[in-house]
Structures are given as C-alpha cells and as structure tokens.
C-alpha cells in the first residue's frame, strides 16, 4: 500500500492530535473530579476550624495559615535576593566566563530534586545553624529552591526593556542606579511580578523540602513564632492520604481542593498580570 503525501499528512495530524488530546484531557478530568468531590466537604467550618479527632474531623485552618506563612516568608527572602541577582545579570554584568558560571549555577539550582533541598536545609539551617525544625528554616530552604525561577523570569523582564530607555535616562544625567530604579524596574514590574507569583506558587505546593525543615505532622494551634513548626497544606494532604488510617474521603478531597484553589488562583493571577502587561506596554 502506498500512501500519497496528503494521506500521510492526514494520518500524522490525526495521531498527533489524539496524542495531544490524551495529554490534556486528563488534566481537565483530574481538576474537575477533585473539585466535584471536594465541594461537598468545603464549608466555612472546614476552612476556619482546627482539626479534631486526630484530624478526622474539624477543619484545616492551621494548614492554610501555615502555607500562607511559608509563602510570605519565602517571598521576603527570595524576592529581594532574586531581583538583585536579576538586576546584576541584566544591568551590570558583562558576558564573561564568570557570568556564564552564574547562569550555569542558576540552571543547576532549578534542576536539583526538591528532596535534596530538604536534606540541604536539614544539614545547614536546622542542624548547623541550629534553627531547629522551624518556619524560618523551612522558608530559607524554600527560598533557595524558588530563587532560580525568580531570577530567570525577572532577568527576562529586565532585558525586555528597550535599551533606548536606559540611554535616554543616562543622557539626561541620571545615574545608573536612578535609571534602574526609576526607568527600568517600573517598566519590567509586571514581568517580575509574574515570576514572583510562579515562584511562590511552587514554594506553596512543595512538600519534600519542608518535610525535615519545618512541617508539623499535627499541630492543633497556630504557630506562635518563626521558630515554631507549622502545618502546611501539601504536607497535610500527604499525611491524611497516607499516614492516618480511617481518614474520611471527604476531608481528603476537601483538602486537595483547597490546595488546588490556592495554586490555581496564583496561576490565574500570574496569567492575568502577564496579559495586562502586554496591553499596557509602551514599546
């Protein structure tokens, strides 16, 4: 049998099209399945109450607060550091062996398995610096993990600002720092924000890095200081779906839904910042 090239094309497109369908259909099914099953569990009480009866009843408030703390704490550390690194790479550094080393390091940081970050956090922050298993140790660990995301998106956003903007500012007598502060940063802000949201999103969803650095199995109260342990949504979902026998399915689906809402909201936020940026861009 000999196929004409148009028949080949039709077959090839069909195969690729169905492969794509097989890839994306499960995403939609999975997300809607979780929300449908979780909707029954979610109520005001489920959100704002402490867990009771060995987590088999009550709400997940400490886990929600804990994840929020972790995301904010991570942001406080990784955003200034990541933004600084991006400014250095885009505005100060020239292409050299040294900047190439920095870039390779960033790529490698992005590729290190999350559980290895957990080990590192345990070795450096928890034990060596004697911070103990605490919010601060978990935030420091998560910060280093999110750093590459923030650096690369922020650097991309800074580089997208046209060179002429800088030249004009310098020509008007602005210093280099004034140029960055008043001209380049405001122009790049939406892009930077997108990166920050995506980075913190990753921090909020990760479990492995906080396993040994600050996550509490069960803590029916809110953490009282940054040296306290905390519950966190992803770790809580792990615990109730694998470690606690006789866990009502409803609570499991409810927790998964809350975590997904958390993460999807951040994703949508990042996407809208990006499209808003495209519309208001002045170049």
């Amino acid at each position: 049998m000999h196929l004409s090239r148009y028949q080949t094309e039709r077959i090839a497109f069909m195969v690729i099209g169905s492969a794509t369908l097989l890839t994306v259909a499960p995403i939609i099914i999975v997300i809607s399945a979780i929300f449908i099953s979780g909707a029954e569990a979610i109520s005001w009480e489920f959100i704002v109450e402490m867990p009771r009866d060995g987590m088999r009843a009550g709400g997940i408030w400490p886990a929600i607060v804990g994840t929020t703390y972790l995301a904010i704490g991570t942001g406080l550390i990784s955003v200034p550091l990541g933004l600084g690194a991006a400014i250095y790479l885009s505005e100060y550094a020239r292409e050299s062996a040294w900047t190439r080393t920095i870039r390779v390091a960033i790529v490698n940081l992005a590729g290190i398995p999350s559980v290895v970050y957990g080990l590192f956090g345990l070795g450096l922050f928890v034990l060596f610096l004697k911070l103990g298993s605490s919010i601060i140790a978990a935030c420091l660990t998560l910060s280093i993990m999110t750093l590459p995301v923030i650096i690369s998106t922020a650097e991309e956003a800074l580089r997208a600002v046209p060179q002429s903007f800088r030249v004009v500012s310098i020509g008007m007598g602005g210093t280099r720092w004034q140029t960055i502060r008043r001209i380049v940063l405001p122009q790049a802000m939406p892009g930077i924000l997108t990166g920050v949201i995506l980075g913190l999103n990753r921090a909020a969803g990760e479990t492995a890095p906080i396993l040994f650095t600050g996550a509490a199995f069960f803590l029916p109260r809110l953490p009282s200081s940054i040296f306290d342990q905390t519950m966190a949504l992803p770790y809580h979902l792990f615990v109730i779906s694998t470690q606690v026998p006789g866990m009502p399915l409803q609570i499991q689906y409810g927790t998964a839904s809350v975590l997904l809402v958390f993460v999807l909201t951040m994703n949508i936020l990042a996407a809208s910042v990006r499209s808003w940026q495209r519309r208001k861009r002045q170049w």
């Binding site: 995403i27 979780i34 969803g205 792990f238 499991q252 998964a256 997904l260 993460v263």
Partner: peptide
C-alpha cells in the same frame, strides 16, 4: 498552552493523592 502550564503547577502531592 495555559492548560499545560496548569498541569505543571499542580503540586506533586495532589497527583499522588489521585
């Protein structure tokens, strides 16, 4: 495109849970 990005953003525990 955004749909695939959403898949990338789903926490690994949620996938494990499912």
């Amino acid at each position: 495109k955004p749909l695939v990005e959403v898949l990338g953003g789903i926490p690994s525990v949620v996938l494990g849970f499912l």
